[in-house]
């Protein structure tokens, strides 16, 4: 079997999950929140490194994932809480969380680096190169390193996210369509927001495996944005979004692996190109019809 099979499966599963959530992310204007969460996750990785939990083993990878997920969820809920206390100024909330978490991450990375640079006896070691490689992976993703155990964790988490999203689909649709009235209809706006942000935090951490801190949020925006260029009907928008997300991921994997390009950025690039194609279709369709 292809050595990249676990990576390909993980990438496709993540792209399905990201595409399904992206419709809500786009329509609820949460793209910047995704960006905030992914950068916040950087702080989580820093904490994991300082605690000595890293992805060299399966247990280490699961431990690191758990710490990053916990940190990202905390960041997402913190953003929601700050946003509520500032009467909905969510950009301020994201600005605060993003900067604080990135700063924390870099400080902790430096701390972990200096710890690794010297052994127990204070002698210099050669951990610098590994550390820089790790930072690069975290910033830009490295899905091709995925083995079967990591792919299994990814599939389990992605399936869980999709299942919870499906269970809450009507609540999410009502909330995203008309949040000011949902409380009056017996749904809790606060609980629904928090549930979605927890799912978004999980999804961002999953997408970080492919596209890293810098580009993860794009996978939770582009497919939904592209689908909305093609239809104004509820069910088709989710179907198109998933198709575009998967097509972009498959093309990106194909090009990235064969041409030896970085896979994460290539996937984001192909999804961006698909978005541009849909934008052109949206612009030209009325003229062609008339």
């Amino acid at each position: 079997m292809n050595e990249f099979a676990p990576a390909i499966i993980a990438a496709l599963v993540i792209s399905i999950m990201g595409a399904a959530l992206s419709v809500f992310v786009v329509l609820k204007r949460l793209a910047f929140i995704g960006q905030g969460i992914s950068h916040a996750a950087f702080g989580g990785v820093g904490i994991a490194l300082v605690l000595g939990v890293h992805g060299a083993t399966t247990a280490g990878a699961a431990g690191q994932l758990a710490i990053v997920v916990a940190f990202s969820i905390a960041a997402a809920l913190w953003i929601a809480a700050i946003s509520r206390s500032h009467r909905g100024r969510i950009d301020t909330a994201i600005g605060v969380v993003l900067s604080a978490s990135m700063a924390l991450g870099f400080v902790l990375f430096t701390l972990a680096e200096s710890k690794h640079d010297h052994d127990d006896h204070g002698h210099a070691t050669h951990g610098n190169e590994d550390q820089h490689h790790l930072i690069e992976d975290i910033l830009f993703g490295n899905i091709l390193d995925t083995d079967w155990s990591k792919a299994a964790i990814t599939m389990a988490v992605a399936a869980g996210i999709l299942l919870i999203a499906w269970f809450n689909r009507r609540r999410f649709i009502f909330w995203a369509f008309d949040e000011p009235v949902v409380d009056a209809y017996g749904l809790s706006s606060k609980r629904t927001t928090n549930t979605f942000l927890v799912l978004l935090a999980l999804a961002v951490v999953m997408a970080m495996q492919i596209a890293g801190v810098v580009l993860a949020a794009a996978m939770l925006v582009l497919p939904g944005a592209a689908a909305l260029n093609l239809t104004s009907k509820l069910r088709p928008v989710f179907i198109y979004s998933v198709l575009i997300g998967v097509a972009g991921a498959a093309l990106g994997l194909l090009i990235g692996i064969n041409a030896d390009y970085p896979v994460g950025p290539t996937i984001v690039l192909t999804q961006s190109i698909l978005y541009l194609v849909t934008l052109i279709i949206k612009t030209l369709a009325p003229r062609l019809r008339s």
Binding site: I173, F177, E179, P180, Y185, K233, L234, P236
Partner: peptide, 21 residues
């Protein structure tokens, strides 16, 4: 305050009052 960009029909928007339960 509804988001009028939502890809939802008039019938679907009205039915939310029942489907949300």
């Amino acid at each position: 305050g509804a988001d009028l960009d939502w890809p939802i029909s008039v019938q679907q928007a009205i039915a939310l009052a029942r489907s949300c339960r």
